[in-house]
Design a protein around this nucleic acid. Structure first.
Lengths: 102, 102
DNA sequence: TCGATATATTCCGCTATAGAAATATATCTG
DNA sequence: CAGATATATTTCTATAGCGGAATATATCGA
């Protein structure tokens, strides 16, 4: 499963955000996301398959950590669009300058 | 529908890529994507709802053009991850330097 | 106006996926 | 070993999304 597919699910985006901020155990993520434990485990499985997270067992606990590498796929996809986005922002800047200056 | 949801579908990514390269009519996109015309029209409807494209009627034809603005959502989502990605790339660079130098 | 062209919409069947509940597995503690 | 804790997996149901075929709508040209 690719990063795009994995990140459609809003709850998975939420989970990955939480993991980025701090490596977390499943129970910590259950608290954060307000989902049932099985639901969280299943989302984590998807994130694992997409290699967006890694797991480090620690007794009964399992620490989930961010692996940002697959996000490069999104970066790469966006790359050709960045110029358009920038052009747009430049236009916005000029507009704001006009508002302010004359 | 948000840009994320709209862009999960690989065919929609393909269609948006084609539209970025050149504004296109539905039939042009049917050729490009190798899908049926109804399928393309339905994907375009989703892209329209996500405001990723705009339409300009021209007789029977309808020209679809890129509107990059909603992609800012992806940029914004990726922003906090960019640091991690860059760190990773730095690591790769160092590794490659090591390969080359000593 | 009639047929042809371009596009959109509807209907249908299929598959994928989310969530809940129950169950399984593994590890800790006493 | 027994119970408690942490996590994963299975099973089920409901729903959403895709694609194709058929149909509807709009516009062009003769």
């Amino acid at each position: 499963m690719d990063a795009f597919t994995a990140l459609v699910e809003p709850n998975r985006r939420l989970l990955l955000d939480a993991i980025r901020v701090r490596p977390s155990t499943v129970n910590m993520l259950v608290e954060t996301a307000g989902l049932s434990q099985p639901a969280v485990s299943k989302h984590l499985k998807v994130l694992r398959q997409a290699k967006l997270v890694t797991v480090r067992p620690d007794g009964q606990k399992r620490w989930y950590c961010l692996n940002p590498a697959p996000l490069q796929e999104l970066e790469t996809y966006l790359e050709p669009y960045r110029q358009f986005l920038n052009d747009r922002l430049d236009g916005l800047e000029r507009y704001l300058d006009q508002m302010q200056a004359p």
